[in-house]
C-alpha cells in the first residue's frame, strides 16, 4: 500500500511534467502557458520529494533516545527535501519575473495571446 502511494506520487509528478510541457508548447494564452511552466517545476519537485520518501522510515532528527545505527538505518534521506526547498524558491523567482513580463507586454499589446505578442517580434 505504501509502495503504491510512492508509485502514485511518481505518476502524478510525471503527469504534471507532461501536462506542463503540453501547456507551455501548445496553449496560446500566456497565463495558461505560465501555469503549465509552473506545473513542470512542481512535477520535478514532487519527483524529488517522492524519491526521498522512505517507506516505514522516520524523520531525520536525531532524538536523545536513538542509537546511531537505528537512526542510520531508519531515517529518511534529508537531501531531497533540502534541494526541493531551494528549487521552490528558484521556481517562485522565475515565475515572478515571467508574470512581471506578461503584465508589461499585456499593457503594450493589449493581449495575452502568445502568437500575437511573441509572433510580432522580428527575430
Amino acid at each position: 500500500m505504501v509502495i503504491s502511494a510512492q508509485l502514485f506520487s511518481f505518476f502524478t509528478a510525471g503527469s504534471l511534467v507532461i501536462i506542463g510541457i503540453f501547456a507551455a508548447l501548445f496553449l496560446d494564452n500566456l497565463i495558461k502557458k505560465i501555469i503549465g511552466l509552473a506545473f513542470i517545476g512542481d512535477g520535478a519537485n514532487l519527483f524529488i520529494i517522492t524519491m526521498g520518501y522512505k517507506p516505514g522510515g522516520i524523520v531525520y532528527i536525531f532524538l536523545p533516545n536513538m542509537t546511531i545505527s537505528n537512526f542510520a538505518q531508519n531515517a529518511s534521506y534529508p537531501l531531497p527535501f533540502a534541494l526541493v526547498l531551494t528549487s521552490i524558491v528558484i521556481g517562485a523567482s522565475t515565475l515572478a519575473v515571467m508574470l512581471g513580463l506578461v503584465i508589461v507586454l499585456n499593457k503594450r499589446h493589449d493581449s495575452l495571446s502568445a502568437s500575437k505578442i511573441l509572433g510580432d517580434e522580428s527575430d
Binding site: 507551455a24 500566456l30 502557458k33 511552466l37 522565475t94 519575473v97 515571467m98 513580463l101 506578461v102 508589461v104 507586454l105 503594450r108 505578442i117 511573441l118 510580432d120 517580434e121 527575430d123
Partner: peptide, 9 residues
C-alpha cells in the same frame, strides 16, 4: 521584453 519572455519560457 518579448525576447526576454521567450527565453524565460
Amino acid at each position: 521584453y518579448e525576447t526576454a519572455l521567450k527565453y524565460i519560457i
